[in-house]
Design a binder for these strands. Structure first.
Lengths: 217, 217
DNA sequence: TAGATTGTTAATCGATTAACAATC
DNA sequence: TAGATTGTTAATCGATTAACAATC
């Protein structure tokens, strides 16, 4: 039994952000057929400290065995459960450009339980075209579609100018989370969860780090 | 004159990661024609504290004026300079799937100084096809191409299985930074800078946060 | 059992915030 | 000048690491 869970300690953000990484490494180890691993060994693979690994896990329970380590399968299942990967998540994509298409076509997302039920765009050139096994719909029909077929997640992959308007429609239509690829800090209404991917920010960070390094040489 | 720069305080990672956000907001304000802004007002827009904003800027110099605030134009130029946006950055993309295409076609990246000189793939179906004004080349020719036309940045948008091998070729060919979209922790050789975009990790974080919220209701 | 390794507590380190003297 | 707001120091908060008793 977990000491932490009944004490209701809130899980630090930094820990939450590492959970997918744990999942990724454990999945890899599972594929490799590894049966057990110590915090020491796993942390070396992940380039973190074994203290951090054990501390992180302790927020969710006790998954190892003293003197032995962790069973890879068990820990993998535990992390999957913590992340909620046993569930299915329904989503629509707004913006049928390359990013939207990439998300539909990347098999990793559906494997993780993301089910995309519709893709929308406002460009007549895109509307009606095929993306995977979906047909791009006119964004004019987004609200109607969601009324008929509600989803949990809205994926915003429009140009920045359209993003906020689209986000409001999604929120009004009852999505509980938004996965946002537009370079904008979305205004929320209600208690929707917004998870941002800012590609441009990442690129600029890379630029900075390149120059930083240069300075040193 | 900056007190911090001559004392050579190293800039915290957390600060570096916020620089692109400052840049983004200031660019927006510039477009809106705003001339001056106080740390108070800007921090409210960005949903951070004004203390943090001033503290962050202080790592790089003094950009404001007591009793007045900051000139938007001046601060924008300063942040641009800190990020190294006056320079051009050359890059090749390996992996001509949707992510690779999105990067070539997104105008924001070239506006920020990213110049993509080549795109490569190993799939005969993609090789020879047009992406923007580039023709997809066979990844077999990657090393040769880079010998002739060196670049600073390698963008890895291949499937995970190919990513490490591609990264080694890039590093061997002298790239100084890698922008990695594959869900893998790349092994480095030499002192290359690796900046990761893990879409899958972001999605899993969204899942977790959706469930977390559910628990509370 | 003896050795290994967990889970957890306490210490350290880093990041954020509050407060205010300096100053425009 | 008087009011406003910066830049910076010090206090607080949160995250990481070290250390070790518990225990398999």
């Amino acid at each position: 039994m977990s000491a932490k869970t009944d004490k209701m300690v809130t899980v630090p953000k930094a820990v939450i952000n590492r959970l997918p990484m744990y999942h990724r490494f454990l999945y890899q180890l599972l594929l490799e057929g590894k049966e057990k691993i110590s915090s020491q060994e796993l942390s070396q693979l992940m380039r973190i400290t074994s203290s951090q690994l054990r501390q992180d896990l302790s927020y969710f329970g006790e998954f190892g065995q003293q003197g032995y380590g962790y069973r890879v399968e068990t820990l993998y299942q535990a992390i999957s459960g913590i992340l909620g990967l046993e569930k299915q998540y329904t989503a629509v994509i707004v913006g049928a450009g390359n990013i939207g298409r990439a998300i539909v076509n990347y098999p990793g997302f559906s494997r993780r339980g993301l089910k995309i039920t519709g893709i929308f765009d406002n460009n007549p050139k895109n509307i009606g075209s095929q993306v995977g096994n979906l047909t791009v719909m006119d964004v004019e029909h987004l609200a109607d579609f969601l009324k008929k077929y509600p989803v949990q997640i809205g994926i915003v992959s429009t140009p920045v100018q359209a993003a906020q308007k689209v986000a409001y429609i999604l929120m009004k239509s009852g999505v509980r989370g938004i996965w946002n690829f537009a370079p904008i800090m979305l205004e929320k209404n209600g208690d929707v969860v917004v998870e941002d991917i800012h590609l441009g920010d990442s690129l600029l960070t890379l630029f900075y780090r390149l120059n930083e390094k240069e300075g040193k040489n």
